[in-house]
Design a protein around this nucleic acid. Structure first.
Lengths: 225, 225
DNA sequence: CGATCTTTCAATGTCAACATTAGGACAAGA
DNA sequence: TCTTGTCCTAATGTTGACATTGAAAGATCG
């Protein structure tokens, strides 16, 4: 009912290529600053340059890569200024998403949030694989945006989602203990506020949640080139 | 004249095509729901289908058109729900842009805002061409986002900018008197608050400015198909 | 030896042809 | 008449070749 079951959306090669390259960036195969040559990717992925080009354009709109006229495409670098920009925007978007979802969320969607928190706790109990925890973190916020039900808001989130994902991966690299100690509690509180919390408190906590992530990343970033 | 002069960035045919099609949509040549066929546009603009395709992808990321797999591209329709989504997001973005610009704006950028307000007043005195007033309105907010200096925030604004432009054109169609009577005053107040206003007041007024636009459009929308 | 102009080339921008598909026209059956 | 299955066509998805360009290597001059 929320999102109908027939997710049989048939996609083109461009989306496929974008997914593959995005995964390669997250896995570290393409480090920050690495050039993404169209011909090379086309050969490696077994598709034409046109499709690769379209896929790269999509990644560019996600902010994961940057490109200029006749100057190629490269993976973005994670500078302190970039983090400031992304997290400032994310705070505003998360605030709106949370307050909107507070009114619009269905019982099923609220349960999905609880389920994700439980998965985080289970993951930590089993040792705590950092990339998987980050994936669950992102999925949690995806669910909030879905519950808000504002397509444009979701698009705005998707435009910085991959960057946030990349930044969070970097964050667990520089401050895993801090992250591991707070993930479950912070998200559990957000889930509770979304179910039956005061709107103003929810708005404030949603912003503070992002602020916490920003500080955690920035604390370990400027020292590392 | 709208933005800084260093606009010498050499662009490709895709951008050119996107600009042309966007202007055609604003002018009413392509009404809401109209299909945008690649071959037809390629012939009329004198470029290849590839460039048109890339340009249409850009317009899709601006939210001006919608497209599906093998289902072509069509101009969006202006429904009440669409307006709700766009204006809710715009309120959040404008709020962040205003509060950020309050600290970061230079004297030159603040003067540019005053200049735009003066142009609005002059335009009204000379009769008041609706499309030109809307263009100045949009340019005013462009300037605020530029003053904020957050690239990601500006990108998020650009993702709904064309939709807002389209909605505002529709708004002056259904409630021109209401618009004409308030544009100058509302923007003059925003400019003053950006120069020397309280942050909280500024945040509230920035949101209310959008809320005012939303109500004005919605009041005349549901009746028209 | 350093600076500036020229050349070169690898990579991107553009294009037109081929392959695939969604949606409608049409006809057979209940 | 309504449903269902088939076919057809117009439009999009995909591809490899050709044109253009930015930047670095090389040459020339002061």
């Amino acid at each position: 009912m929320s999102s109908a079951l027939p997710k049989a959306a048939r996609r083109g090669l461009a989306d496929e290529a974008a997914d593959l390259v995005r995964a390669a960036i997250f896995s570290g195969h393409f480090p920050p600053g690495a050039p993404l040559r169209e011909v090379e990717l086309a050969e490696r992925l077994g598709v034409s340059r046109g499709s690769v080009r379209e896929g790269l354009a999509r990644l560019e709109h996600e902010g994961l890569v940057r490109g200029g006229w006749h100057r190629g495409t490269t993976v973005i670098r994670v500078t302190a200024e970039d983090a400031q920009e992304v997290y400032a925007l994310r705070a505003a978007l998360d605030r709106l998403a949370a307050t909107t979802a507070r009114r619009a969320a269905t019982a099923e969607q609220l349960s999905a949030l609880d389920r994700l928190v439980a998965e985080m706790a289970a993951e930590i109990a089993e040792g705590g694989d950092a990339p998987r925890l980050v994936a669950l973190d992102i999925a949690f916020h995806d669910q909030i945006y879905a519950a808000a039900g504002n397509g444009r808001l979701t698009s705005a989130w998707e435009a910085i989602r991959s960057q946030v994902h990349l930044f969070q991966l970097r964050r667990v690299d520089v401050a895993y203990d801090h992250y591991r100690a707070r993930v479950v509690d912070e998200h559990r509180e957000l889930a509770a506020l979304l179910r039956s919390g005061d709107i103003r408190t929810l708005a404030r906590r949603a912003e503070e949640h992002v602020e916490s992530a920003r500080r955690s990343l920035l604390a370990g970033l400027p020292t590392a080139p």
